[in-house]
């Protein structure tokens, strides 16, 4: 089946390893020029999916369509898709210049063009001073940029990034995320990132697909996925969430900590709602609606904010105001109805 999608389409992809269903019936449309992220815990099938897009793995069924052309049966060497590997997979016996030139040389691009294109790539990723060095002489962050340059120099239609930042320390990672986002916006290429780091996904992506057990369970912009998590798994995997279980009857949601008003009736009678810690407001006086009186049980200082845990119900509140909270203080929690997310399970 051919679609008119200008980007990459995955249609009904399945893959099993022995008895394990690594990828189950994944259908996705990735737009051209989009920064797309496959987010999920380890073993959810996201890397397998990426490898099938790269052509390093063959799916059991389903097709991969790039710019309207079915590339399902094309091997990796014939796909205009390049990968930044998790371990970078740089050739240790080749210097940085030759590593970056590798794909061009494979395709027998004229020497003159190789020189200019590699030089451009070196400059773009600020590697200009080290073309003659070898991978083992470079830092992890530099090697990562070399891996990126080595893939980008081929001008791929889709760039795949397989957890490229997992080997970097937290500070560098945050910096690289922003750089990667800028680079993608400047080049306008389609990037597909695989990661288990929800912060990374939120920072870099245009759209996110959250995967679990080989299936895509939610799909949307970072805001959509963060603000309206579909289920308990996503609510807890992306950021932090307070989950409140209870029953809905007589127009109210009855939880252990008290009845709450919702924006509309949920699709179930017994279920769970979520609220993010930073969405709960604290006040000394009783709010008009959905006020819960609670006692401070633990305070964690996190620099930019405080995480305050309340009893009953182990409710976590993220507050950026530094009042002198003390353990044992009694406060009103304002769980506004519009902030409560009904999870569908």
């Amino acid at each position: 089946m051919i679609t008119d999608n200008k980007g990459l389409s995955l249609q009904g992809i399945n893959k099993t390893y022995g008895k394990v269903n690594a990828v189950k019936d994944v259908t996705l449309d990735i737009n051209s020029g989009e920064f797309f992220t496959l987010l999920g815990p380890s073993g959810c099938g996201k890397t397998t999916l990426l490898r099938m897009i790269a052509g390093l793995e063959l799916q059991d069924s389903g097709s991969v369509i790039l710019e309207g052309q079915d590339i399902t049966r094309l091997p990796a060497i014939k796909r205009q898709i390049n990968t930044v590997f998790q371990s970078y997979a740089l050739f240790p016996h080749l210097n940085i210049f030759e590593n970056i030139a590798f794909g061009l040389r494979s395709r027998k691009v004229p020497e003159k063009e190789v020189q200019t294109r590699v030089q451009e790539a070196l400059d773009m990723l600020e590697l200009g001073t080290m073309p003659n060095r070898y991978p083992h002489q470079l830092s992890g962050g530099q090697n990562q940029r070399v891996a990126l340059a080595r893939a980008l120099v081929n001008e791929p239609k889709v760039l795949l990034l397989d957890e490229p930042m997992s080997a970097l320390d937290a500070k560098l990672r945050a910096q690289v995320q922003v750089e990667l986002r800028r680079l993608q916006q400047k080049l306008g290429h389609t990037f597909i990132l695989v990661t288990h780091d929800q912060d990374e996904a939120l920072v870099v992506s245009d759209r996110i697909a959250v995967m679990k057990d080989g299936q895509i369970i939610q799909f949307g912009t970072p805001e959509e996925v963060y603000d309206l998590p579909k289920n308990r798994f996503i609510a807890q995997f992306l950021g932090a969430a307070n989950l409140l279980a209870g029953r809905f009857h007589d127009g109210m949601f009855h939880t252990d900590i008290g009845p709450l008003e919702l924006e509309g009736p949920p699709p179930w009678e017994r279920g769970v709602i979520a609220i993010r810690p930073e969405w709960i407001k604290l006040s000394d006086t009783k709010p008009e609606k959905n006020g819960i009186k609670a006692k401070v049980s633990e305070i964690i200082y996190r620099g930019t904010n405080l995480d305050i845990w309340f009893e009953p119900g182990a409710i976590r509140v993220r507050s950026s105001t530094y009042k002198n909270f003390k353990i044992g203080d009694e406060l009103w929690l304002d769980l506004a109805a519009e902030e409560l997310v009904v999870l569908n399970e």
């Binding site: 790269a54 052509g55 390093l56 091997p75 990796a76 060497i77 014939k78 898709i81 390049n82 990968t83 590997f85 998790q86 371990s87 997979a89 740089l90 050739f91 016996h93 080749l94 590798f102 794909g103 494979s106 395709r107 080595r150 893939a151 081929n154």
Partner: peptide, 21 residues
């Protein structure tokens, strides 16, 4: 490390190039 072989394939290498590099 077989990822190097995969990287070579990903970078359009012929079989000879894969072996050599």
């Amino acid at each position: 490390d077989w990822t190097l072989v995969e990287a070579a394939q990903d970078l359009y290498s012929s079989n000879i190039r894969i072996f050599m590099h």
